[in-house]
């Protein structure tokens, strides 16, 4: 099915234009008026409340990480997932450190400080970004594999777990990661069950009791009609 055609049919044809009723306006002469100083904002990614919009503006006006820290995040991120900086990794970390400081701020900043201290101790006072690739990987290999039996993990491992978590989110919520994953939804379409080969692979089949009752997608635009018992005619 042509996706664009489907979209047009479904989004344009299915319902008429919405009627935006009578939201009473604000009248300063003393009539009881509802109002609007708290009108929601529509900028960006769908409706935001005034509280959310103001909060986000404040966050964006602040800066949390230093240039050095951001650079270190970018270098580490590209080891965890090659090219993750194209998915906005360090920018995402910067935003989340301000958006959810209790979760991210000290964990990331402290982890970066731990990483630089470890680099410095092992490689003549160099920071992580000053190391060559082999040296960086040597450090990463020591913190990238948590002991699944341990109840607590050393600081370096904890930091890497968190950095991995952030890199996975940044990557898989970006266009690159979505394509890599093969997610093909978030678009108008018509669901008609899993492909037959998938059902066969898993040894599953529709229950014959319900098979005739599932929506016939060829007839979904026809007006529903029932008999008195609620059976679809």
């Amino acid at each position: 099915m042509d996706r664009r055609k489907t979209l047009k049919t479904l989004l344009g044809g299915a319902v008429g234009t919405a009627f935006i009723g009578t939201t009473t306006g604000c009248d300063r002469n003393g009539d009881p008026v509802p109002a609007s100083a708290v009108e929601a904002e529509t900028e960006g990614y769908g409706l935001r409340t005034a509280y959310e919009a103001e909060r986000e503006e404040n966050l964006r006006s602040e800066r949390f990480f230093s240039d050095d820290e951001l650079q270190t995040l970018a270098v580490l991120g590209n080891i965890i997932i090659p090219g993750v900086e194209e998915s906005g990794f360090s920018e995402f970390c910067e935003f989340m450190a301000k958006d959810q400081p209790a979760v991210h701020a000290t964990r990331l900043r402290g982890g970066l400080a731990w990483l630089n201290a470890d680099s410095s101790r092992r490689y003549d006072g160099k920071s992580f970004t000053e190391l060559d690739d082999e040296q960086r990987i040597a450090i990463v290999d020591e913190i990238a594999y948590p002991d699944p039996e341990a109840t607590t993990q050393p600081p370096g491992v904890q930091f890497f777990n968190h950095a991995r978590y952030m890199a996975l989110t940044a990557y898989y919520t970006s266009r690159q990661g979505i394509d890599d994953l093969g997610y093909v939804g978030n678009q108008a379409n018509v669901w008609d069950g899993p492909p037959q080969e998938v059902l066969d692979k898993h040894g599953l089949a529709y229950d014959p009791k319900w098979l005739p009752l599932y929506v016939d997608q060829e007839k979904r635009t026809e007006q529903i009609q029932w008999d008195d018992q609620g059976n679809i005619i």
Binding site: V15, A18, I20, T23, S36, V38, E39, A40, T42, G44, Y45, G46, L47, T49, Y51, E52, R55, E56, S87, G88, F92, F95, M96, D99, Q100, T169, A170, T173, S174, R175, I178, N186, Q187
Partner: peptide
């Protein structure tokens, strides 16, 4: 609260992608 009409394209969150949100859809607010 405020007026809300999901048919208003400016208010729409439906069919948006996670990368359109700076927090990638996180539940902060």
């Amino acid at each position: 609260g405020p007026y809300f009409d999901p048919q208003d394209n400016e208010m729409r969150t439906q069919l948006r992608w996670p990368y359109e949100s700076p927090r990638r859809g996180a539940s902060t607010t």
